[in-house]
């Protein structure tokens, strides 16, 4: 068991300050052959450790189609993430185990319209899939990204969003909760904008959503009202995890281990789980 828990060393290449409390850490394994072999699917996660502080679970926020590196976008929240933000610098080493968990259902969404609904740091796991889909753009039909945050400063991946906007084959809708002087786009919470501005096509569309619990709650209700079938709504769960191997029991909800059977679930699957996440 212990052998499975030993991390490999990766070096931080670049740190991007996304928002006041979110940073993206771009890294690669110190061992080049390991980096070449390292492959993951959108939606999978790694166990990221700052040696001495502890180990945390983060999804990989970049796509395997962008070769040579991988990203983790980390929000300052608890003890380890606070240490990561204050201690880690470019060129430092971290421990990585993974990738673990299932992934977004890549086969199911082929040939469909895609609607991404993200809130705050919830765009991070979606970004992996967005990049993957952009790099395989031909496989999908309409492509819409709805992204909201509390304030304009809290929007992650600003540079990348600008790129997405320039891409004519993608529709990008941004929103913030309260009006700001320089803000020219939508104002209002994500579910409201979803119903009033985006007005998505229901038929042949898959919705992929991730965000804070409160946003997810109301977004799921909106999607229900709009007429989406629960099996067409895909989300990724946040749950405290530790081993990633289906052993430590932490992410056990019902007979499901989130780290093995998840973290990606359809709304239909979520409804069958006990309400403990």
């Amino acid at each position: 068991m212990e052998a499975l828990l030993v991390p490999s060393l990766a070096r931080i290449d670049r740190i991007i300050q996304e928002t006041p409390d979110v940073r993206t850490y771009r890294m690669k394994f110190k061992d080049d052959s390991l980096m070449e072999k390292f492959s993951w699917q959108p939606g999978q996660f790694v166990e990221f450790s700052l040696l001495g502080s502890g180990e945390c679970t983060f999804c990989i926020s970049s796509s395997v189609t962008r070769k040579g590196y991988f990203d983790c976008s980390i929000k300052r929240a608890g003890i380890v993430t606070a240490d990561i933000h204050s201690d880690l610098e470019e060129g430092d080493d971290v421990g990585i185990r993974g990738p673990y968990g299932n992934c977004f259902p890549l086969e199911d969404i082929k040939g469909k319209n895609l609607l991404f609904v993200g809130g705050g740091i919830g765009l991070a796991p979606l970004r992996s899939l967005i990049q993957y889909c952009i790099d395989n753009r031909g496989d999908y039909k309409d492509f819409t990204i709805l992204y909201g945050a509390r304030t304009s400063a809290d929007l992650c991946f600003k540079e990348e969003i600008e790129e997405w906007k320039k891409n004519t084959s993608i529709k990008v809708v941004l929103t913030i909760d309260k009006p700001e002087d320089t803000w020219k786009e939508n104002v209002g919470v994500v579910p409201k904008i979803l119903e009033e501005v985006v007005k998505p096509e229901i038929a042949n569309t898959k919705v992929i959503t991730c965000g804070p619990p409160i946003m997810i709650k109301y977004t799921l209700q909106s999607l229900d009202r709009l007429g989406f079938a629960p099996k067409d709504v895909i989300t990724t769960l946040e749950m405290k995890m530790q081993c990633g191997l289906g052993k430590c029991g932490r992410c056990n909800i019902g007979s499901t281990y989130i780290c093995k059977d998840g973290p990606v679930f359809t709304y239909e699957q979520l409804k069958a789980l006990p309400d403990e996440f």
């Binding site: 828990l5 502080s53 530790q242 029991g249």
Partner: peptide, 20 residues
């Protein structure tokens, strides 16, 4: 069930797996 925790003294440290 178990937990994974780090113990660090200066530049060296140990990572433990222990009951939870």
């Amino acid at each position: 069930c178990f937990k994974i925790s780090d113990e660090k003294i200066k530049d060296t440290g140990v990572r433990y797996k222990s009951y939870d």
